[in-house]
């Protein structure tokens, strides 16, 4: 409501609009175009209506990768959010160790996705990788290229290692914004540490945690590079998530129609969830 108006500002936004048009709207329209047509090569296209959509929605393969995707997202949210909050709570509130902790926390976030995948690939190799070798030495039969469970374990662990820091940093920022008087009042009211967490820290972190969940949901729902580098979607199809499946369909099998329809369904699902989150967040603020 407190915005300055100035019509010239629109000119400033114009380059961004153009950019968005070129790298988002136009590709999206191409995908929409593909999703309703059939091609047999030679740039010949036939209109097919919603055939591809029906096919995708009825396909067991799509259902399977969607279920894997949902399971994966659920798992990493269930681990990363509480873990991130726990680490943020354990971090010092002031002093020399604060910057040290923050830098350590930020490190994984700075590593490119494909490097993370490659790193973990080597790290988890049962013969030479520290993790793989160590687990086997401890008596576990661990090989992420053969056992589906081991593969899942590795992919989830990798994501937790890579992204929990983001949750930690957000939660820490939320915690730091709580005035000291709240902690003092709680001590005076005789509140247990658990009560302090439940009635002061968690409510005050609610907003940043909503953002953390939203970010982690979107990222994990669209995850591609790391599991692709690590497991390539295997063994079999056990770690083939939606985006990997999509690329397989589009580039591996050249099923452009199917892939396009899948993309659009995928896109709409993400959009829907974001919208639900956004309204929930806004409603929370209105109160």
């Amino acid at each position: 409501m407190n915005k300055t108006w100035n019509n010239r500002a629109w000119f400033m936004v114009l380059p961004v609009l153009l950019l968005v048009a070129f790298n988002a709207v136009i590709p999206l329209m191409t995908v929409v175009n593909y999703s309703v047509q059939e091609t047999f090569g030679n740039n010949l296209f036939f209109f097919e209506g919603v055939k591809w959509f029906q096919e995708v929605l009825r396909s067991d393969r799509f259902h399977a990768s969607l279920m894997r995707q949902l399971l994966f997202t659920f798992l990493i949210l269930a681990i990363e959010i509480p873990l991130g909050v726990a680490i943020a709570l354990a971090m010092p509130r002031s002093g020399f160790w604060v910057p040290v902790c923050l830098v350590l926390m930020a490190l994984p976030l700075l590593i490119p996705w494909n490097v993370v995948g490659a790193m973990w690939n080597i790290f988890a190799l049962p013969d030479i990788g520290l993790l793989g070798y160590g687990l086997n030495a401890l008596g576990f039969d661990y090989n992420f290229t053969r056992g589906p469970l081991a593969a899942w374990f590795t992919v989830v662990l990798m994501d937790v290692w890579h992204w929990t820091s983001l949750v930690v940093l957000l939660a820490y920022a939320g915690l730091r914004s709580i005035p000291d008087a709240y902690y003092q009042a709680a001590r005076i009211d005789g509140a247990s540490p658990w009560a302090v967490f439940w009635y002061i820290q968690l409510p005050k972190m609610k907003r940043v945690l909503t953002i953390a969940v939203l970010l982690r949901f979107m990222d994990s729902f669209m995850i591609y590079t790391e599991p692709f580098v690590l497991t390539g979607g295997g063994p079999g199809n056990t770690t083939t998530f939606l985006s990997i499946d999509l690329v397989k369909a589009a580039l591996g099998e050249f099923n452009l129609g199917i892939a396009a329809a899948m993309s659009i369904i995928y896109f709409l699902m993400t959009l829907l969830v974001c919208w639900v989150f956004y309204t929930a967040m806004m409603r929370g603020e209105d109160q």
Binding site: P179, A181, Y182, Q184, A185, I188, Y199, I200, P203, K204
Partner: peptide, 11 residues
């Protein structure tokens, strides 16, 4: 103790 800025439990 009553502080300068009101401390209440929001939820």
């Amino acid at each position: 103790q009553v502080f300068q800025f009101p401390v209440i439990y929001d939820t």
